[in-house]
């Protein structure tokens, strides 16, 4: 089968190659998915560039990407919750990475039926960004009437997070640039802050939850806007001590400034690792079918133009997700 593979770390055009490889074999708890569409995410780019070599070392060559939607064509003998012919979507686990291929084997724990009211391309755009947003906001304990600040509302994670927070009945502040204000507002955000002309710290104050999708100084600044006893969840900022321990970094301490800022507000700082979860995707399926959440797609590329798709992703200018139609 045809697959887009990473042959070495480095610049996108030098590292990605289309190879003919053998079809994956399934284990008892796996389904084999005939890939209809795959989506690419910033993490895919970081892996190719080699930025995550120490945390997520990969064998060379490895097939790229995690997000998939397609049709179940084979199932392992322990699988009883999926059938041949089911239309599904998933964020595949690390050890099964490689959705930019004609087929991918996935453990059923990570798989859900896809929403029936959207296309394969739209479904493929949801898992990684959707799970990241949902798991972060749920970890923060989001509830009705919470004031939530979501950074980068026009990104894949941000655009999903706004809709998820609204579905939960929260009041949503979000930041974006001038050209995105209108469509981000249309996602349901209550107050869209144009960071080019406004200071978000003066507008979003005493919020219950800050969802940090930007990192750098934004992680620290979050404690200027979060309320006493609030929570900051981050997917890009420094690790917190619990998550560092998971990585075997026993002596890790939260950066001093961050520790000081959070204790001054008596607020919690949590780093969130998205994890694949089919049941969470079931929840997302229901939200999408009830039109609480709409997939936001920037561009759909044909499989043969996957490398161009990565170049587009790397430009950082996508509004919503970049999807690849595989078959």
């Amino acid at each position: 089968m045809k697959a887009l593979q990473i042959e070495k770390y480095g610049a996108i055009e030098d590292s990605l190659v289309f190879n003919e490889i053998s079809k994956p074999t399934i284990k008892p708890n796996d389904v084999l998915i005939e890939v209809k569409a795959a989506a690419i995410n910033p993490i895919d780019k970081s892996i190719i560039l080699g930025n995550l070599q120490s945390m997520l070392p990969i064998a060379m060559p490895s097939t790229s990407a995690y997000d998939v939607s397609g049709v179940v064509v084979e199932k392992g003998n322990a699988v009883n919750n999926f059938d041949i012919g089911d239309l599904v979507y998933a964020r595949v686990p690390q050890e099964q990475m490689g959705t930019l291929a004609e087929y991918v084997a996935v453990t059923t724990d990570a798989v859900s039926k896809k929403p029936g009211n959207i296309s394969f391309e739209e479904a493929a755009s949801l898992p990684l960004a959707g799970l990241t947003a949902m798991q972060s906001l749920e970890r923060a304990g989001i509830k009705e009437n919470d004031k939530v600040l979501i950074h980068a509302g026009s990104g894949g994670v941000g655009s999903f997070a706004i809709q998820y927070a609204k579905a939960k009945g929260a009041y949503v502040y979000t930041t974006t640039s001038t050209s995105n204000v209108a469509w981000v507002k249309a996602l349901g955000a209550d107050r869209v802050i144009d960071y080019k002309t406004e200071d978000y710290k003066k507008i979003a104050q005493d919020v219950d939850i800050v969802f940090d999708t930007l990192g750098q100084n934004y992680s620290l600044e979050a404690f200027e806007v979060v309320k006493q006893g609030g929570i900051v969840v981050s997917v890009v900022g420094p690790l917190d001590e619990d998550s560092a321990q998971m990585f075997g970094m026993a002596d890790y301490k939260l950066p001093t400034e961050l520790a000081k800022a959070s204790s001054a507000k008596n607020a919690v700082y949590k780093f969130i690792f998205m994890y694949p979860n089919g049941q969470h995707l079931e929840t997302i399926k229901t939200l999408v079918e009830d039109e609480k959440i709409k997939p936001i797609i920037d561009t759909v590329y044909p499989f043969s133009k996957s490398i161009e798709a990565f170049v587009h992703l790397a430009s950082g200018r996508a509004k919503g997700k970049i999807v690849i139609k595989v078959s």
Binding site: K36, K114, G116, N117, F120, E121, A123
Partner: peptide
């Protein structure tokens, strides 16, 4: 009863 079109929509 429903059909699924080539794009995966019902």
């Amino acid at each position: 009863s429903y059909c699924i079109d080539k794009n995966g929509k019902e």
